[in-house]
């Protein structure tokens, strides 16, 4: 479990992170969303033990990360801009990691080669950008991390590879309870694999939610009545948004599904449908005014 406790970080005079507290449960996939410059990379570097917060602390399984090799050995950080030693082949890089990460799994490394189909003897710099990213994932997963920190990992990958890697990640989470923190400036890119979503905006964590809770907590209701209903139809419901399209009323309602249905059925609607919302829609309605500020994350 990763816990960050009121983390703050300043560069020069600008506050990059302000009192960020987040919790990532073991075996979960945590999506960190935010526009460029929101502080995602800084937060992840702090979690990975690269940078030190000015204030607050970060613990993984109750221990600090910075300079703790035991904790860092269980973790792998994949930066948004990749780095390999110059002139190194995949094989040489793997040798380096084998000597550096105690949990390195050579078997896994060879197994993954079947999947990626890249030449181990070739210099990494000669691969395309997308291929290099695959190499990075290949090496990262071979170190058998318990915690995988991914900063904008899917940039430059085509849909097929993206799918392939997502599957690998999900598989590791399922099989060995790997924990992933994944950052993105695009919700759609990661919504299909995340259990949790945190939104970082101007150095502050705006919200942190369990996606299942979100989805079961908010509903789009389509309802129509034979006659114009009383205003009290909506009393007692938590309405986030409502509009009328002809005789059909469209409303976004927060609450449990059964409660909403039983409440509306009292008024004998002609039509009563509960439709699923996309995550994007949920955020827009959930966040109200603040939603505008982060709109660009959600496209």
């Amino acid at each position: 479990m990763i816990v960050s406790n009121s983390i703050s970080k300043k560069y020069e005079k600008s506050h990059v992170l302000q009192h960020v507290g987040l919790q990532v449960r073991k075996g979960s996939i945590y999506g960190l969303l935010g526009s460029n410059g929101a502080g995602k990379t800084t937060l992840m570097k702090i979690i990975a033990g690269i940078a030190r917060p000015d204030d607050g602390e970060i613990t993984i399984d109750g221990k600090g990360v910075f300079e703790d090799t035991e904790v860092k050995a269980k973790m792998f950080f994949l930066s948004d801009s990749l780095y390999f030693f110059s002139q190194y082949t995949i094989k040489q890089m793997a040798d380096f990691f084998r000597d550096t990460y105690p949990n390195w799994n050579q078997e896994r490394f060879f197994k993954l080669q079947q999947l990626f189909q890249l030449d181990m003897k070739k210099k990494i710099s000669q691969f395309s950008k997308g291929m290099q990213r695959q190499v990075a994932f290949w090496l990262a997963l071979s170190t058998m991390p318990e915690y995988l920190i991914l900063d904008e990992p899917f940039d430059g990958l085509d849909a097929v590879i993206r799918k392939k890697i997502k599957n690998l990640l999900v598989q590791d989470v399922a099989e060995r309870e790997m924990t992933i923190i994944i950052s993105s400036h695009n919700l759609r890119e990661i919504e299909d694999i995340c259990d949790y979503i945190g939104i970082l905006h101007q150095g502050k964590l705006l919200l942190e939610k369990d996606i299942d809770d979100l989805k079961s907590d908010i509903h789009k209701v389509q309802v129509a009545f034979r006659e114009k209903p009383d205003t009290e139809v909506w009393d007692g419901l938590d309405i986030l948004y409502k509009e009328k399209r002809g005789s059909v009323i469209l409303a976004i309602v927060r609450g449990k599904e059964e409660r909403i249905v039983s409440h509306l059925e009292q008024f004998h609607p002609v039509i009563l449908d509960l439709l699923p919302l996309t995550l994007e829609e949920i955020f827009v309605y959930e966040m109200g005014d603040a939603g505008y500020a982060i709109e660009n994350i959600l496209v």
Partner: peptide
């Protein structure tokens, strides 16, 4: 070099 610095310092080796 930013990339290199991030990479080296993310490894489980003390500074």
């Amino acid at each position: 070099v930013k990339n290199a610095s991030d990479f080296i310092h993310s490894l489980p080796i003390t500074r």
